[in-house]
Design a protein around this nucleic acid. Structure first.
Lengths: 251, 251
DNA sequence: CCTCAGGCCTGACGCTACGTCAGAGTCAAG
DNA sequence: CTTGACTCTGACGTAGCGTCAGGCCTGAGG
């Protein structure tokens, strides 16, 4: 039986954190007659698991669910969490790259401050155009896509990118208004979608399949993982609608 | 003159964000007779700067300060922010590495769940021992330190690491209790500090100087950057105290 | 002139994982 | 019995908005 401070030191957390976990039901303590929290070695084991999951960025509510084994398998959680972290890392790398560019701009130019800030914007937009779809493909497919995209002019890239954004917005609207996925408008959207995928993947069926797999997989991520992830461009609703529209178009 | 929604789309933010910036005085809008917010092209330029700085993770309050040029030079802010982000990236990488190890443990073992979580803890602790000081050294010094540390047994590493932690805690306490930096206790702390630095750097003065530079530099970071950074192990107070103690010991 | 959709406003609460008081009780040692 | 170290329970603060709720404004069509 440990008291709060002693126990907290054992696991490298603060007493206040223990209070927090206690109140939210993540790690409940026994109490002494005076109301002091008392912790056992079993509690220590649990706390260490909590710390481990917290370290990799799993939200406390989800940790509670995981540790209570309500059908939430750990391996899936780890995979999802890894994807979340990799998404964050991508953003971090972009931000750092943008800073580096801005710093160089400041060293070179003589109208430094505003120019440097503009440079950051520029880098963001550029990276966004260059990478905005990469997260949906696996390594092999990404390589092929990159290869292919080298052949495109910046203007073409820009145009295709904008077409995607518009199309996705339209599909989103259609899904939200509960349009008929077998209707004429849906069919038109589906065919535009197919065309863009072909253009994007160069008609390579392997690449197309890879992109499709990742989209479908991502649509099935647990909601909590999605919330932590970067802003979605292709939501499950969009994906579901377009799948139905394609199926309806074919069948 | 743009109204809220239109203006927000121009810069890729939400109307709610504009409200927020308005209220906190970061981007104040003119108002129509009906009380509607009205934005100009000048406002757009400012908003774009805000977005740029926000993208690289600068807190809004600091952005306000930077844009009002109260003696806050942009280049320093960029450097500081880059360090902050690099710190975060280090943590992210460690977390991802921990997940990868845990996943492998799950695939290999047959008592998977608890074993996997233990593995995460293990990786954390190991990385912490291996890296806990690396952040304070530059690349060249880091290489030398790494080289040298390969010669150490894990037990020795563990022992040295623990000695550092203890010593820093003692110095922190001494600084907090405002002990005399020229007193006997302070001198003893200073000599222990010197010994550990020598042990750690292998007596190489270049490495020692590099480590010292980084510590001193970091102690001078703006408070806001420090808050964003990882938990400090060597605080400015600790650093200041030990510097005084060493100076007092010599002079 | 009226209406109705869509845009706009101002509160005000919610979210994450605790930090940080404030006021008050508990425990062990001297 | 005092003192110092520890503990407890509220309750507010943090960053950057998201998300209602309740109500006003505007502009196109009838």
């Amino acid at each position: 039986m440990y008291r709060a401070q002693e126990f907290a030191k054992l696991a490298g957390v603060t007493v206040r954190a223990l209070h927090h976990y206690d109140r939210m039901g993540l790690l409940k303590a026994r109490r002494s007659q005076a109301g002091y929290r008392l912790y056992s070695d079993n509690d220590l084991a649990r706390l260490e698991q909590i710390v481990a999951l917290k370290f990799i960025g799993v939200p406390l509510k989800r940790i509670r669910g995981l540790l209570e084994r309500k059908g939430d398998p750990l391996d899936g959680a780890l995979r999802a969490q890894r994807r979340v972290l990799e998404g964050k890392r991508l953003l971090l790398d972009r931000a750092i790259a943008a800073i580096v560019e801005a710093e160089q701009t400041m060293r070179n130019g003589q109208a430094p401050e505003t120019a440097a800030l503009k440079k950051i914007i520029e880098v963001i937009v550029m990276q966004d155009n260059r990478n905005w779809m990469d997260q949906y493909a696996n390594d092999a497919a990404r390589a092929k896509i990159d290869e292919r995209r080298k052949l495109w002019s910046p203007e073409l890239q820009e145009r295709v990118s904008r077409q995607w954004v518009e199309l996705i917005a339209e599909v989103e609207a259609a899904a939200e208004h509960k349009e008929d996925p077998a209707g004429a408008h849906a069919k038109e959207l589906a065919s535009r979608w197919k065309l863009l995928v072909e253009e994007f993947t160069g008609g390579d069926p392997d690449v197309a399949q890879s992109v499709k797999n990742v989209w479908a997989d991502r649509a099935n991520w647990p909601e909590e993982a999605q919330k932590q992830a970067q802003p979605f461009r292709i939501t499950p609703e969009v994906w579901g609608f377009i799948q139905k529209a394609m199926g309806a178009g074919k069948g």
